[in-house]
């Protein structure tokens, strides 16, 4: 079986100082496979996502290959890449308020996705928008299409984003912390919807999160990222039961809050993996910019 997406030796540097944020990242995603990418803030997860879709800031330098459909995405001209984005490769961002245009009614934003790739009449498009909003479990889809993003709750906004991202039956959906800004109950609903939509579209996903428990729920395989490197990858069950890297062991220990004795001293990642010298909390600008619609 050929991989849907093969990333080989992906390196990213930022700025004139060429700070090295991704170091020889290599992995593959099979068709329909759900792969989790886990790591803490600043580890390079979002940079990976942006690099795959050619969305990195202009001060970024990349090396390596990202093979999709026999072509190297990194070498593709922007026009061809733009054609893939929103059609075959889509992305779901963390903060749905910034991913949606605040000045545009929800229905029109969904319609844009349809019109990008389809010559449908206005009436036809409208009917499809309302149908689509209903499919993702939004109440009163016709009324909602006329609403502005700020009139929706966080969970509803993320449903709209999912509706758009999975509209054109993509092959790969990159989800960057899609439920981190949400409450646990809403998170559970959105994850269930994501599962349903991915299955319906037969799409693969690269699911980025800092929460191992969420990744374990969604994905079959997981990759652990630390300071721009993938330090461990494998089937979720194997990694959880036999974590090889001490950092992964630390992540698993911190995620077991439900097992801790109330009030006891919780294990931290540092108990398992001490970094020689943590780089000061300087996060490259491109990471801070995540969620910005482009």
């Amino acid at each position: 079986m050929t991989a849907l997406l093969a990333v080989d030796g992906l390196n990213v540097w930022f700025g004139r100082s060429r700070s090295h944020v991704l170091k020889s990242v290599t992995f593959a995603v099979q068709p329909g496979e759900r792969v989790g990418l886990i790591g803490e803030s600043g580890s390079g997860k979002s940079v990976t996502a942006l690099a795959l879709l050619g969305l990195l800031a202009e001060n970024a330098t990349t090396a390596g290959t990202v093979t999709y459909g026999g072509r190297n995405l990194l070498a593709l001209p922007e026009r061809e890449l733009a054609r893939l984005r929103g059609q075959e490769l889509t992305m779901v961002f963390q903060e749905p308020m910034t991913a949606l245009d605040p000045t545009m009614r929800v229905g029109r934003q969904v319609a844009e996705v349809i019109k990008l790739h389809d010559d449908a009449s206005g009436k036809e498009t409208r009917a499809r928008v309302v149908e689509r909003l209903g499919q993702v479990g939004l109440p009163d889809p016709a009324g909602l299409a006329e609403a502005f993003p700020h009139e929706l709750s966080g969970g509803q906004r993320q449903r709209v984003i999912l509706a758009m991202a999975l509209m054109n039956r993509p092959r790969l959906v990159i989800c960057d912390e899609p439920t981190t800004a949400l409450d646990v109950t809403v998170q559970a609903q959105v994850l269930a919807l994501l599962d349903h939509e991915l299955t319906a579209a037969g799409a693969a996903t690269l699911f980025i999160s800092h929460d191992l428990a969420v990744v374990a729920q969604v994905c079959q395989r997981v990759m652990v990222m630390l300071d721009g490197e993938i330090v461990e990858q494998g089937p979720v069950g194997d990694v959880l039961s036999h974590p090889a890297h001490p950092y992964t062991q630390g992540l698993i220990a911190t995620a077991r809050l439900d097992r801790a004795v109330p009030g006891s001293h919780l294990p931290t990642v540092d108990d398992f993996y001490a970094r020689a010298s943590r780089p000061a909390a300087k996060v490259p600008a491109a990471v801070e910019m995540r969620g910005v619609a482009r």
Binding site: A213, T254, L257, L266
Partner: peptide, 14 residues
């Protein structure tokens, strides 16, 4: 906060 940082802050509050 990240899940990995959460434990540190919870320990501090405790």
């Amino acid at each position: 906060l990240d899940v990995s940082v959460r434990a540190q802050v919870l320990n501090l509050i405790t």
